[in-house]
Design a protein around this nucleic acid. Structure first.
Lengths: 232, 232
DNA sequence: TGAAAAATTGACGCAAGCGTCAGGTTTCGC
DNA sequence: GCGAAACCTGACGCTTGCGTCAATTTTTCA
């Protein structure tokens, strides 16, 4: 849009100073955007937090929107990592458990970005590019096929894969996005490793059993997965 | 905080005109807050949407914060309705199924407020009063006890009740809060009744089975619930 | 070492937003 | 009908915020 002569230099490789400053600015921006939302965030505050004068922030990023988009774009690529766990070659039990744990772990380590993304989605994804949108859809559909393949192989119930995804996403995001509520419900001043551990156990247990996931191999424990233990 | 002589008249009963205008303003405000967030919303826009001059908005509500708090406060009371389903006297299968359905239904009918609340929570609940906070916690703990009672009675597995709650909340809120993502994943321009129906079926099936909920009565237990079929 | 490129910065123009106010009009109770 | 209360509103003061600019300092590298 804007293109002042001092606008960010786009593609050319960053010098060491540029790389450092950009990183500093983005980190500060994540904090401010997370706390205030897009509209509520001010460049002045981002500048103050990063210890640079406002004009210098504009030197590296042409506008507030550019900073925001950069962060969102960077983040979307990161979700993929957790999804790698859903590999069709693996057994669903360990794959799904791995995904849940990775997703929770990511939410915990990158709580601020998670909240930023949640905020963005709540407001309709104004700044998510068509490309990012398509990427997310493609990945989702690809992984949905994995669930279907497992079901076809008799390794789990034929659950609607998209809604299952939503359930997994919703349950795991909660701890980062609604941190303040989770802390209240769990009556702790801060969500610690043990809280996430317990969350992982609970979600994993319910989902695996709820989807009738068959435990693999010679493992003895197979629980009442398939044979719904209903009284006769 | 502020207390101009023309501030809202607080407790005194509203006249018919006051009631109508307040309602109009709140409805307009919900739309604006939902779209832009607290900081992004401007009184001018709320005024324009409600067809009243800005000064008139200030006549009824002393500040932006007052409007916002009013909406949030009104909403919190509404969650309780869905929770009424979790009555310890009922059988867990139908109680939980009823709760899931009621929660999804609420999310669907009050999507804007749901998103507003999500936004508020993401930003740390700046405007949720201590009282509202305590109320939510009390209600949650009370209902957690219901799950525990069912488990003690052998009607379901001893699942961590708080984390189960979070799973249910997260899964059901998703459709309202992250509407834009859900539409993308489900490849529909608009979430319709059938989408919510399918969501309810999937979540209910997974959670009931996953928590080992025993189906009650002599009624023939229909296997893995209504096994969700795969979409076309 | 010296000139070009990169980086830094204080100050500024302009727009939008919050909340106020004074004075007018309508409604309501009696 | 009439006075008081409720309601309405255009205009204004003041602050915050986005993005710009011109001028200066620092870094790079040939």
């Amino acid at each position: 849009m804007k293109k002042g002569k001092t606008a960010a230099r786009g593609v050319s490789a960053d010098t060491r100073i540029a790389a450092r400053n950009k990183k500093t600015i983005l980190e500060a921006a994540i904090g401010v955007f997370t706390a205030k939302g897009y509209d509520g965030a001010s460049i002045a505050e981002i500048a103050k937090r990063s210890g640079l004068p406002k004009a210098n922030v504009y030197y590296y990023f042409g506008s507030k929107e550019t900073i925001y988009r950069t962060i969102i774009g960077d983040l979307i690529g990161e979700w993929d990592r957790a999804l790698d766990h859903l590999d069709p070659a693996r057994e669903p039990a360990e794959a799904i458990a791995g995904y849940i744990r990775a997703k929770l772990d990511f939410s915990r380590r990158h709580a601020a970005q998670s909240r930023m993304f949640a905020n963005e989605a709540v407001h309709g994804g104004r700044f998510v590019t068509r490309k990012d949108r398509n990427h997310m859809l493609a990945v989702t559909l690809e992984k949905a096929k994995v669930f279907e393949a497992w079901a076809a192989a008799g390794k789990m119930d034929p659950v609607d894969p998209i809604h299952l995804f939503i359930l997994l996403w919703g349950a795991t995001q909660y701890y980062a996005d609604f941190d303040v509520l989770a802390k209240s419900h769990l009556q702790t001043p801060r969500l610690g490793a043990s809280d996430f551990e317990r969350a992982a156990e609970t979600i994993t247990a319910i989902v695996l059993k709820g989807c009738g996931v068959v435990l693999p191999g010679p493992a003895a424990q197979r629980g009442p997965s398939r044979a719904a233990r209903l009284r006769g």
